[in-house]
Amino acid sequence: MKTIKFYTLTILIAVLFTACSESNDDPIVIDENPLAAFNLLSSFEANNHTVEVYSKQNQYTIGYNELFFRIKDNGTDSYISDASLTMTPMMHMEMMSHSCPKSTISNTKEASVYKGFSIFQMPGNATEYWELGLEYSFGGQTYNLAERIEVKAPADGKKRVNVFTGADENRYVLAMMPMKPEVAVNDFSAMLFKMENMMTFPVAEGYTIEIDPRMPGMGNHSSPNNQNLTFDASNNMYKGKLSLTMTGYWKINLKVKDASGALLKGEDVTEENEASSLYFEMEF
Score class of each variant (00 low, 15 high):
R214A: 04
G140D: 06
Y238E: 00
N65D: 04
S103Y: 09
F6I: 15
N65H: 07
Y64L: 06
Y64T: 04
L134R: 01
F231L: 12
N47L: 05
I4L: 15
L134N: 03
T270K: 05
G75H: 10
D168V: 10
S43I: 07
Y7V: 15
Y129K: 15
K159D: 04
T86V: 13
A184F: 14
M87I: 15
S103T: 09
I252S: 01
T165K: 11
M95W: 11
D25A: 14
E131P: 02
Y129G: 06
L12V: 12
E169T: 13
F120P: 00
N235M: 13
H98P: 05
K255A: 02
V203N: 06
M1P: 08
M246D: 05
Q227D: 12
I11N: 02
D212A: 11
W130H: 02
A111F: 07
N170G: 13
K239C: 09
K72H: 06
K102I: 06
L41F: 04
A167N: 11
M90A: 13
N220V: 05
S43W: 03
E281I: 08
N170V: 04
S23W: 12
I80P: 00
F231A: 06
P178M: 10
M93H: 09
E271M: 12
S78C: 03
L278I: 08
I252A: 01
N273C: 11
F69W: 04
T200H: 07
S260K: 15
E128G: 07
S81N: 07
A19Y: 07
N253C: 08
V183I: 15
S81V: 05
M215W: 10
A190G: 06
I11Q: 05
A36H: 14
F38T: 01
A155T: 14
V29T: 15
M199D: 10
N47E: 09
N74Q: 12
N33Y: 09
L174V: 01
I149C: 07
L132Y: 04
G261N: 12
A111K: 09
I211C: 01
T10P: 00
M177E: 05
T247M: 14
I28T: 13
N228C: 09
M199A: 10
Y249D: 06
S189K: 06
G219R: 05
S43C: 11
K158L: 15
F44T: 09
A204Q: 02
M191A: 08
D187K: 13
L9W: 08
M95A: 12
T88N: 13
T247I: 12
M1W: 11
S234H: 06
S260R: 13
E128M: 12
